[in-house]
Amino acid sequence: MERAVWRILADVPDPEIPVLSVVELGIIRHVRIAEGRVTVGVSPTYTGCPATEVIARSIEARLQAEGYENSKVEPVLSPPWTSDWLTESARIKLEEYGIAPPAHAVSNPKHLFREPKVACPRCSSMQTAKVSEFASTPCKALYRCSSCLEPFEYFKCI
């Protein structure tokens, strides 16, 4: 029964990067079923991410539509979400969508003080430069490719 819920969640898109499902984004922490009521644990990517509430509502609405009454989303802060939890399929989809996936794992916090080498998602050139640490959503930074001259977003390692 829990597996059925996971399959439904695998079809709920992230509102800001709709090519990814909430499962691929790595924010679903657990699915529990007690007395016929589903509880889904969701980790915010960033504490202030404005999509958090939209995600909770879309998960509840989707489960409702699939016949799960009164399902509930509960926030899970610990352990904190990390970009390491993106699935392999998410990395491929991000790249196809034009967003460079995180360059490396973040197990060591020192990574923040080294500039990652980011490949352009359009032409695969490594001749890219950071334009800004921050971009259109909390989870991305802004880059530019020096080969094809296109700007692109980079999914931050955090």
Partner: peptide, 20 residues
């Protein structure tokens, strides 16, 4: 524009901490 976005993004993280 980049710094505008940066300050707003930092503000958003701080607001998230405050809400919690």
């Amino acid at each position: 524009l980049e710094e505008d976005l940066a300050l707003a993004n930092i503000a958003l993280d701080l607001l998230g901490q405050a809400r919690y």
